[in-house]
Amino acid sequence: MSKKIGFIGCGNMGKAMVLGLLTNEKITKNDIFISTRTRKSGVKITDETGIKYTLNNCEVAEFADVLFLAVKPNMYKSVIKEITNYVKENVIIVTIAAGVKLSDVEMWFGKEVKIIKTMPNTPAMVGEGMSAICFNKLIKQEELDYVCGLYNNFGKYEILEEKDFHAFTALCGSSPAYVFMFIEAMADAAVKLGIPRAKAYTMASQSVLGSAKLVLETGKHPGELKDMVCSPGGTTIEAVIELENQGFRNSVISAMEKCADKSENM
Rank of each mutant, 00 (worst) to 15 (best):
L193P: 04
C10L: 15
D261K: 11
V91W: 12
R197V: 03
A190D: 04
N250P: 11
V252C: 15
K262I: 14
T218A: 00
L225Q: 04
V179H: 00
G110H: 04
K262D: 13
I183F: 07
E257T: 11
Q141V: 09
N57T: 09
N57C: 09
M266F: 11
V79S: 09
T169E: 11
E143H: 00
L225N: 06
A185W: 08
K114C: 04
K44F: 13
T169S: 14
D31Y: 07
I159S: 04
I183W: 06
I253N: 13
N57M: 06
S263K: 02
A190F: 06
V18N: 09
C259D: 07
I32S: 07
N265P: 10
H166N: 12
M13S: 08
V147K: 04
A70S: 15
F168I: 03
A61D: 10
L160C: 08
I115K: 01
A187V: 01
C259Q: 09
T49R: 13
S131G: 12
G42P: 06
K199S: 13
T49H: 14
M228F: 00
T49F: 11
E62A: 08
I253S: 12
N245C: 15
F63N: 10
L138H: 14
S205M: 05
E106Y: 08
V87N: 06
R39M: 14
C230A: 12
V66F: 03
S263V: 09
N152I: 06
I34L: 14
